[in-house]
Lab assay of single mutants.
Amino acid sequence: NITNLCPFDEVFNATRFASVYAWNRKRISNCVADYSVLYNLAPFFTFKCYGVSPTKLNDLCFTNVYADSFVIRGDEVRQIAPGQTGNIADYNYKLPDDFTGCVIAWNSNKLDSKVSGNYNYLYRLFRKSNLKPFERDISTEIYQAGNKPCNGVAGFNCYFPLRSYSFRPTYGVGHQPYRVVVLSFELLHAPATVCGPKKST
């Protein structure tokens, strides 16, 4: 009989979030998941669920729940959905087409922007091929755009693959930082360890 609440607040209220290319994953298990708490945590810009209804979450049980978190800019949030393409979905964080879970995003301009520009958040701009779903690539190998090998040196047709967002508070919403948490629900042929409040007794 599990009584402890799932530590969603640790994920959502973390002081620092990860850069999207090096997104963070927390496995959540053996706890009571009260998803209604999430609705009250922040004024969400996005709370979209796929393959599951957000209002039914509190009635369900899962084997595992994974919470992935990272920062992107406002106009990239739409890429965090099944079947999307674009720089983020292709080279940084890719959801599977049959994704079961929820994408939660909110504006973090007050936390993640600086007047002089916050350069701490990076994204991958160049990659030889698209990522597979939930693949994480943290390599910093020089990207070869031409025929000549780069031998690890940046220059003509040889690019450092990561680029930094420079978040400034005066930017338009599309270029402001957004914190994203992706909850993916895993149903294996194994005992369910993460249940809503109704199912945990």
Score class of each variant (00 low, 15 high):
2 I>Q: 14
115 V>G: 08
88 I>T: 05
139 S>L: 06
35 Y>T: 10
11 V>N: 05
194 V>N: 12
16 R>Q: 15
171 Y>F: 05
53 S>I: 09
41 L>H: 15
72 I>F: 00
49 C>E: 01
183 L>M: 08
13 N>W: 07
23 W>V: 02
36 S>K: 13
173 V>L: 15
7 P>S: 14
91 Y>Q: 04
150 C>E: 00
81 A>H: 05
5 L>Q: 12
199 K>T: 13
130 N>Q: 14
24 N>M: 09
174 G>D: 07
9 D>G: 13
162 L>R: 04
111 L>D: 11
57 L>N: 08
158 C>S: 02
55 T>N: 14
33 A>N: 07
10 E>L: 08
122 L>F: 11
197 P>Q: 15
19 S>A: 06
114 K>W: 09
47 F>H: 10
161 P>C: 03
93 Y>W: 01
144 Q>V: 08
112 D>Y: 03
110 K>T: 10
104 I>W: 13
197 P>F: 15
181 V>A: 05
43 P>T: 10
172 G>Q: 00
126 F>D: 00
168 R>V: 01
87 N>C: 13
54 P>Q: 14
157 N>L: 02
148 K>W: 09
36 S>G: 11
198 K>V: 12
39 Y>W: 15
86 G>I: 01
140 T>P: 08
184 S>M: 09
32 V>A: 08
116 S>C: 06
70 F>I: 02
196 G>C: 09
78 R>Y: 07
91 Y>D: 02
14 A>I: 06
70 F>S: 01
137 D>M: 03
125 L>S: 12
24 N>K: 15
3 T>P: 11
66 Y>T: 13
20 V>E: 00
23 W>N: 02
201 T>N: 15
80 I>F: 02
119 Y>A: 08
12 F>Y: 06
120 N>R: 11
75 D>E: 10
150 C>A: 00
9 D>C: 07
115 V>H: 10
150 C>T: 00
116 S>A: 13
192 A>F: 14
44 F>H: 15
139 S>H: 08
184 S>Q: 11
6 C>P: 05
175 H>R: 01
141 E>V: 10
86 G>V: 01
188 L>H: 13
50 Y>H: 07
174 G>H: 05
102 C>A: 04
156 F>D: 04
105 A>K: 05
19 S>R: 03
54 P>R: 15
